[in-house]
Design a protein around this nucleic acid. Structure first.
Lengths: 258, 258
DNA sequence: CCTCAAAAAAGTGCATGCAATTGAGGCGCA
DNA sequence: TGCGCCTCAATTGCATGCACTTTTTTGAGG
């Protein structure tokens, strides 16, 4: 143990944040499914930290609603009910309407370019794995929130967007997000035009249709091994890089149905 | 060392939650002001736990935005900027409009009675300490959120309401919430009448005016000793008792506990 | 009396150890 | 076969210890 590979003493570590980011990503890419167990030991080992840190990270994720903590029991990825999923989308709609209301007609050229580039990336990833499409679509919304320059709004939108992502794992099937890409483009156009009412309506429609497409019927769990699942996430790549081909080397490992 | 006298082995402890609740309350009652230092040691000592637990609690509160965590530095009560405060209120307005939209015309008789009782309690506390009035006013809104039976909505409304409370500490002076009590009564009436549009408008106006009254100009800090401040909160009274007499109304049981 | 550096104190960051709880298998018994 | 009880491995709950960082205090020199 204690394999401190960094060598440096004062690394700007934030180990807890690293683990949180990794797990969040694993969850929104559906590598970790709702109900998946998250033992402190395994997490600590995977990320090279002690249980104390893993535990703290789980606490944070629980505060965000991505993880369920049961006393004296192994933590699991949250398993929202259908109703909770619907509630999350309702909240998300209001929050994101607020975002675009603040943004309409106030975006700089470079911001609009950034948004367009992101949607192009979504487009490019359309034929790749679903996991990436889903993540990119979510990140588009977070990107919008960030442009409001309101840290609070960013936090709430991110959080609720992640939760909505999670519900996709539970209730959605194959996933068909092509249309969503077009809606994103329309959104950008309306934002650039500064049509506040229209952009709010578009966002409402967009999210509502995503919710309606998403919340259909439960999906059976796959059941894989935690350590394998987490392998590609342990590196803490904050940007893309391996993002375009994130999950593939993962063996299916016939974990007994839980 | 090992002064664990607990005697009972399986106390349903949730020590972290206890500390969080106590600190939240101390913050919203303005006993702990923005910028107040929260050393892990002192917290642990005050609540009879180790630093590990105190630290974890601080992490949770930081996730809620009530506490600021700086690496290698003592944690402090959050000090939102004026703009952040305004943003928080904007978000709160949207969330609470969502609450009353769901509630309009759907409240049972007993729920309405509960709400009325709470407002009566607010009225009774009008001449008491400001701290209590503020807390009760905030709890009224949380009570409403709880009646939606949407855990997610409850969480977000609570969180943002606490944050708004915090901004009162920073930017508000003496506090004049009498009018707010009337607005609460109007809200109840409109909810009972089931007038969705009216109740949403009322909530908007109410919160907006609270925000405008609150966000005026900074207030100088008082500066007292942490241990003294926390003394009355260490007991973890989740409901009334030592709080002036906050109301027997706060007794709401959300739906199924699972 | 002020300035600044070095030492001491205070405080956080994190791993580790031990007690307590839970869940799973194994065994007896009907 | 099926059911309840018991034991034990797995795992969490939490305190403590040590290393490192920041803040405060001290004290010598100007």
């Amino acid at each position: 143990m204690a394999s401190k590979q960094s060598g440096k003493k004062s690394e700007g570590s934030d180990k807890v944040g690293t683990i949180c980011r990794a797990l969040r990503r694993a969850i929104i890419e559906q590598a970790l499914e709702p109900g998946a167990k998250l033992p402190e030991d395994a997490l600590g080992e995977r990320f090279g930290v002690s249980r104390t840190i893993a535990r703290h990270a789980l606490g944070q994720l629980a505060a965000e609603g991505l993880v369920e903590l049961r006393r004296n029991r192994i933590a699991v990825v949250a398993t929202p009910s259908w109703q909770e999923a619907r509630d999350a989308f309702d909240i998300r709609i209001e929050l994101e309407r607020l975002v675009v209301r603040q943004l309409a007609g106030r975006l700089s050229k470079s911001q609009i370019a950034t948004l367009k580039a992101h949607v192009d990336a979504e487009d490019a990833a359309r034929n790749g794995p679903d996991a990436v499409s889903i993540r990119l679509a979510t990140e588009f919304h977070i990107l919008l929130a960030q442009m409001t320059n309101s840290p609070i709004l960013v936090r709430y939108v991110s959080e609720v967007a992640y939760r909505c992502c999670l519900t996709l794992s539970m209730f959605s099937r194959p996933h068909s997000s092509e249309c969503a890409i077009n809606e994103h483009r329309q959104l950008i156009a309306a934002l650039a035009a500064g049509d506040e009412a229209k952009v709010m309506g578009l966002m409402h429609t967009h999210l509502d249709s995503v919710a309606n497409r998403a919340l259909v019927t439960p999906v059976p769990p796959r059941g894989r091994d935690l350590l394998d699942i987490l392998a590609p996430y342990a590196a803490d790549e904050d940007d893309e890089k391996n993002a375009a081909k994130p999950a593939k080397a993962v063996r299916l490992r016939a974990a007994a149905a839980e």
